[in-house]
């Protein structure tokens, strides 16, 4: 009997391990779905508060692989109060990302901690971490396959992602990943008390340079009752981005 129980436990563990391995592979496929040397975007973010009032932000984002690391430069364009602010992230394997910000009101480049990624991104429902959520390194989370279910008629895997870093702003995330397209159509984020705080949905995708790309994404803050819709006005893959964009000089001057 004991032998049978041990075998069942071993089988269950093997199934769990296989499930985890599959989930990791699904997540990796979703993460690596769009292959591009560089990505350049200009996005409008429309924030709607509880009362229905709307305000707008405009940001440019340039991403590329630099010396083997993912590098992202965000240039804040509007509103006028944040014009000239630039934010650089360089991802690191097995340790928190390096992040720097240049604030015109500060007059210098300042290194900030990854922990500050939980702060609101320009007053939107996105946090700094959310902005790069689609590009988040798969190895930073442990994935398990929670279930399979359709979402808006699309067959999806539902993965649970638990960040390995206990200081990360979310304790877990649920991802609805399309079986046919590997798109993360929906992501629910849960805080450390396991309360759902946000939900991200991809509302519209478009074929751009042969890649099915999200061009409209919404993040809703569940408790606050606010939402932010991100419209991608310009999206270009593989456009030349000088490596000097991801430098302290660009942070300071806005010039590569």
């Amino acid at each position: 009997m004991k032998r049978i129980a041990s075998a069942a436990a071993a089988l269950a563990l093997a199934v769990l391990a296989a499930s985890a391995q599959d989930a990791q592979a699904i997540a990796r496929a979703a993460r690596d779905r769009i292959r591009a040397d560089t990505v350049s975007t200009r996005a409008r973010m429309i924030i709607t508060d509880k009362g229905g009032n709307r305000t707008e932000r405009l940001v440019d984002q340039y991403s590329a692989k630099v010396d083997g690391s993912d590098a992202t430069m965000i240039v804040f364009q509007k509103p006028a109060g944040v014009t000239g602010t630039r934010f650089l992230t360089i991802s690191n394997k097995d340790k928190p990302d390096d992040r720097w910000i240049f604030l015109p009101s500060l007059g210098k480049v300042r290194r900030i901690s990854a922990g500050e990624g939980s702060g609101s991104f320009m007053g939107t429902d996105f946090s700094y971490d959310d902005v790069s959520l689609m590009d988040r390194d798969v190895d930073l989370d442990t994935f398990t396959l929670a279930r399979e279910e359709p979402l808006d008629g699309k067959a999806c895997w539902v993965l649970e992602a638990r960040p390995k870093d206990p200081d990360y702003q979310y304790s877990r995330m649920l991802l609805w990943i399309g079986k046919s397209d590997s798109i993360s159509w929906k992501i629910e984020m849960y805080d450390r008390r396991d309360v759902q705080v946000k939900v991200l949905t991809i509302d519209k995708v478009q074929d751009i340079q042969g890649r099915l790309s999200p061009v409209q994404t919404t993040v809703r803050s569940v408790q606050a009752g606010t939402s932010t819709v991100l419209y991608v006005d310009i999206l270009k893959y593989d456009e030349k981005i000088p490596p000097s964009v991801f430098t302290v000089r660009f942070l300071e001057t806005g010039r590569p």
Binding site: D60, Y62, V75, Q77, T83, I234, G254, P256
Partner: peptide, 12 residues
């Protein structure tokens, strides 16, 4: 807003 991109061709 400041112009977009770094290519030699103007953005649309």
């Amino acid at each position: 807003a400041q112009a977009f991109g770094f290519g030699t061709e103007p953005a649309p």
